[in-house]
Amino acid sequence: MAVTVNLTVNGAQHTVECEERTLLVQLLREHLGLTGTHVGCDTSQCGACVVHVDGESLKSCTMLAAQAEGANITTIEGLANGDELHPMQQAFHENHGLQCGFCTPGMIMSSVDLLKNNPTPSEQEIRHWLEGNICRCTGYHNIVKSIQACADKMKAA
């Protein structure tokens, strides 16, 4: 059976008709064409699909699209301010915090939420926060550095 979902994604309002079993990540990718949010697993382990739902990071494969009724969603495509990258995006670029790029949208969305909750995380706090995001390329070294650099920059600003 189809359901109708009204939600705001990256500032734009959408009304989407989808199957009841449709996951939020499927709505974003398949109905709205926002393919920056990725699917890397089927057990909610990898974190490639992390988006912000009403300002909090969330694995969009763990939520039915129907549950997002009325929600305000930000995906990786909505993070930059026009051509101006979000400081976290800039930090990942400047610190080589990505290789293949597949986990990167989820990593960045998760990291933005970390600094919102904890603007000055220690290395261990960063590593602990990232437990739900798997990267197979970087060994996390430069991801941790990216987040540290972003935190430093945002603190100085």
């Binding site: 990786i76 495509e77 670029h93 400047e94 990505l98 790029g101 597949f102 990167t104």
Partner: peptide, 19 residues
């Protein structure tokens, strides 16, 4: 040199087969 290919990945504009 910082990577030329980064921008599309950090803005969600990568183009993988499933996309």
């Amino acid at each position: 040199v910082l990577r030329k290919e980064d921008r599309r990945f950090i803005t969600g504009n990568g183009n993988y087969v499933d996309d």
